[in-house]
Amino acid sequence: MKSRVVSLKLGAALLLLLAAQPAMARSPEMHIMEGFLPPEWAILWLAVAVPFWVVGFLQIQRMVREKPESRLMLGLAAAFAFVLSALKLPSVTGSCSHPTGTGLGAILFGPFVMSILGTIVLLFQALLVAHGGLTTLGANAVSMAIFGPLVAWIIWKGLRGRLAEGWVVFLAAALANLATYVLTSAQLAVAHPDPVGGIAASFAKFGAIFAVTQVPLAISEGILTVLIFRALRQNAAAELQALGVQRAQS
């Protein structure tokens, strides 16, 4: 039925997929580009994001009412997250990428405030560096500003005190990075199902790439976050405390 379908063994298939490596509309930091999602999906993901934004906004509103100057700190935090995503992050495979910063952000601010800060970052990335887009803002927010931070937050809250803090931070950041990637892949897969193999096949396409390229990057981001977090504990304990990150329970 199809013009030219070649049968290959799995290994060869993987190799070929790797050739198409940066695959699917990801700019360097996993954003889905403008216009890449059909309207129904764009709207759906926007609708998923809204409840998180509402809760995050109410939390921010409360912070600002109690301490008017916290808006300065929140503005600076978003700027920090934007600039952090421009940091060169080496991968174990020798390639180079950028941290998502979602794990660190979630630990510092919690998932709801982070959903707002992350979305602000995404908006400026769309406008200032042409990464991502306006119609795909909802989808990108769900994967990068909501799902990733949520995963990190759950790990952070759930494992703290049971595991050495370094490991918790590592797992939170690395898995947040992976979660973001998996969800982005899923978003693309359901919006663009493979004409031959369907959604499962398109997800497999990304899954293959994911296993080879994204795991090392997630590990890098995990280690980076641990190093940053440890340095902050040592040199910026007062600042962390002001943000509400308590001392580790011993």
Binding site: L16, A25, A201
Partner: peptide, 19 residues
Amino acid sequence: AEGGFLLTGVLGIAISVRL
């Protein structure tokens, strides 16, 4: 530059896989 990104992006759609 954006077109270049997109091109590598749609490659994922163009290449079809059947499991």
